[in-house]
Amino acid sequence: MPQPTGVVIRMGDNVPVDGIWEPLTITRGKVLGLIPVGATLSENAGCFNYLVQGTRAPRMTGPFNESRGYAEDIDVSWCLLWKDDRYTDGLIPDEFEYFVTAPGAAPYIEPDPAIPAVRAGEVCPATGHWQATGHPEHQVHVVKGAVMPDLVIKDWSGAGKVHYVEWALLRQDKEGR
């Protein structure tokens, strides 16, 4: 966990940099319940968020209040934990090295362009990470010799529908060559 950078903004403020931000509730001690004095106390108010420079820091909504019939906003500040400066030079780096690999898993290499896309139900020609053509959010790891899977996508009602898709190799395991 990175140490906070010291950059803190309030909800509704302009976000100064891209990065990972932590929502905090900040309280100060008070004299007679009115005048803020002493040290501040900050406490995590929810899930970390990736905030984009130039947008407004979001508000946080608390739990739903049954008696009032709505959820109230939580007064939060946002603390920058990690400044994202990966794209400042205009280039998009290969970020596959950042992904966590399971212990003992084979490292990935670029796929062999000679390995064609395969359809669901066909035998997998190479061990690696495959993506459903036309569905970039659906990726699977398949071992050479296994049958390529169908793709089940939930429709508006939540029912899963089977799609007979074509799979393209994204990354191939080293030992799969």
Rank of each mutant, 00 (worst) to 15 (best):
T55K: 11
T55Q: 14
R56K: 13
A57T: 00
P58T: 04
R59P: 00
P63D: 15
F64S: 05
E66G: 01
G69E: 12
Y70K: 01
E72M: 06
E72W: 02
D73L: 08
I74W: 02
D75H: 05
V76D: 03
V76L: 00
S77F: 05
C79V: 02
L81D: 01
W82K: 02
D85T: 15
D85Y: 13
R86W: 06
Y87L: 10
T88L: 13
T88V: 12
D89F: 03
I92R: 04
D94S: 07
D94W: 00
D94A: 12
E95S: 12
F96N: 13
F96A: 07
F96S: 11
E97I: 07
T101E: 11
A102E: 15
A102Q: 12
P103E: 00
G104Q: 05
A106T: 12
P111Q: 12
A114V: 10
I115N: 12
I115K: 08
A117M: 11
A117Q: 11
V118T: 10
A120K: 09
G121Y: 05
G121N: 08
G121A: 06
C124I: 15
P125L: 04
A126S: 08
G128H: 03
Q131A: 07
H135F: 14
H135Y: 14
E137G: 04
H141M: 12
V142W: 11
K144I: 07
A146I: 07
A146G: 13
P149S: 11
V152N: 06
I153C: 01
I153M: 11
D155N: 15
S157A: 07
S157F: 06
A159M: 13
A159Q: 13
K161F: 10
V162D: 15
V165P: 13
V165M: 11
L169S: 10
